[in-house]
Deep mutational scan, measured.
Amino acid sequence: GPIITTQVTIPKDLAGSIIGKGGQRIKQIRHESGASIKIDEPLEGSEDRIITITGTQDQIQNAQYLLQNSVKQY
């Protein structure tokens, strides 16, 4: 399918649970989903961080599912 980009906003407090120790968790999510995932640095004074996910519809759905699971375990 076509490559698309979607953005998800997360509270910055949850960023740690998604990134994992030394970036292990986010690497695993990238690997498992096949999507490209970029977590922006939090904006000055903002409570949120923006996650940019790029890939096919399937890859993005996979990545979103894995991201949600990471947050739930936290």
Rank of each mutant, 00 (worst) to 15 (best):
G1Y: 02
G1W: 01
P2G: 14
P2T: 15
P2K: 10
I3P: 02
I4F: 06
T5S: 10
T6G: 01
T6Y: 01
Q7P: 02
V8E: 14
V8T: 04
V8Q: 06
T9Q: 09
T9N: 02
T9M: 07
T9A: 11
I10F: 08
P11L: 04
K12L: 04
K12W: 04
K12D: 08
K12H: 12
D13W: 07
D13C: 10
D13N: 14
A15R: 02
A15L: 09
A15G: 04
A15P: 10
A15V: 09
G16N: 12
S17K: 12
S17G: 09
S17V: 07
S17Y: 03
I19N: 08
I19L: 10
I19S: 09
G20W: 05
G20A: 14
K21M: 10
K21N: 15
G22T: 14
G22K: 12
G22L: 08
G23S: 12
G23N: 13
R25W: 11
I26P: 03
I26H: 04
I26D: 08
I26F: 13
K27A: 09
K27T: 08
K27M: 15
Q28E: 13
I29C: 09
I29P: 01
I29N: 02
I29V: 06
R30S: 13
R30M: 15
R30W: 06
H31R: 10
E32I: 06
S33A: 06
G34M: 04
G34V: 01
A35W: 00
I37M: 11
I37G: 00
K38D: 14
I39E: 10
I39L: 10
D40Y: 03
D40F: 03
E41H: 14
E41Y: 06
E41V: 07
P42T: 09
P42F: 06
P42G: 10
P42I: 13
P42C: 08
L43A: 11
E44D: 04
G45W: 07
G45Y: 12
S46D: 14
S46H: 12
S46W: 02
S46L: 07
E47P: 03
E47K: 05
E47M: 12
E47T: 07
I50H: 13
I50A: 12
I51M: 08
I51H: 01
T52N: 05
T52H: 13
T52M: 08
I53Y: 04
I53C: 03
T54S: 13
T54N: 06
T54K: 11
G55W: 00
G55V: 00
T56E: 15
T56A: 09
T56K: 07
Q57V: 05
D58V: 09
D58P: 09
I60D: 00
I60C: 06
I60W: 00
I60E: 02
Q61R: 11
Q61D: 15
Q61W: 02
N62V: 08
N62R: 13
N62T: 12
A63M: 01
Q64E: 15
Q64I: 01
Q64P: 00
Q64T: 10
Q64C: 02
Y65W: 06
L67S: 01
L67N: 01
Q68W: 02
Q68V: 02
Q68L: 04
N69F: 03
S70K: 05
S70W: 15
S70F: 07
S70H: 15
S70V: 06
S70P: 14
V71K: 10
K72H: 10
K72Q: 15
K72T: 13
K72G: 15
Q73F: 12
Y74I: 09
Y74K: 02
Y74M: 14
